[in-house]
Amino acid sequence: MKLAGAVVILGAALLLLTSGGDCGICPAIKEDVRLFLNGTSEEYVEYVKQYKDDPVILENTAKIKQCVDSTLTEEDKIHATTFIEKIEASPIC
């Protein structure tokens, strides 16, 4: 897995750790991750815009999304999604 894939998984793990201890990810974060990994740049920027309508942030959001899309393979994205699903399904949570 490439560095960007590791960063996505690390980010997902951090989201889970900050979710209040029950391993549940709120629906807004789930949608954010879904669009970040599998949506188009336009879809992702529009989603982020709901929460922060700042031109600089939106420009950087588009750049990060384009970087992820050009760096992560479909396999990397599937692994990251599967990782999140396995953590949520874990009986330890």
Rank of each mutant, 00 (worst) to 15 (best):
A4F: 07
A4Y: 10
A4V: 14
G5C: 15
A6P: 02
V8S: 04
V8Q: 08
I9Q: 10
I9Y: 06
I9F: 04
I9M: 14
L10N: 13
G11W: 04
A12I: 14
L14E: 08
L14W: 05
L16N: 08
L17R: 08
S19L: 05
S19Y: 06
S19D: 11
D22S: 11
C23N: 09
C23I: 04
G24L: 13
I25W: 05
I25C: 07
I25V: 12
I25E: 04
C26E: 13
A28D: 10
K30D: 14
K30S: 09
K30I: 04
K30W: 03
D32K: 13
V33T: 02
R34V: 00
F36P: 00
F36S: 13
L37M: 01
L37C: 01
N38F: 05
N38K: 06
G39C: 01
G39Y: 03
T40L: 02
T40H: 01
S41D: 15
S41T: 15
E42Q: 11
E42A: 12
E43S: 02
E43H: 04
Y44W: 14
V45T: 11
E46M: 05
Y47A: 03
V48S: 12
K49D: 08
K49R: 15
Q50R: 15
Y51R: 12
K52L: 14
D53E: 15
I57M: 06
L58S: 03
E59W: 08
E59G: 12
N60I: 05
N60K: 12
T61G: 10
T61L: 05
A62L: 12
A62E: 12
K63G: 08
I64W: 10
I64T: 11
K65P: 01
K65V: 03
Q66R: 13
Q66A: 11
V68I: 12
D69Q: 04
S70N: 13
T73P: 00
E74N: 09
E74R: 06
E75N: 12
D76K: 01
I78W: 07
H79K: 14
H79M: 14
T82A: 09
F83P: 00
F83T: 01
I84V: 06
I87D: 02
I87A: 10
E88P: 02
E88M: 05
E88I: 06
A89N: 07
A89R: 03
S90W: 09
I92H: 08
I92P: 04
C93M: 06
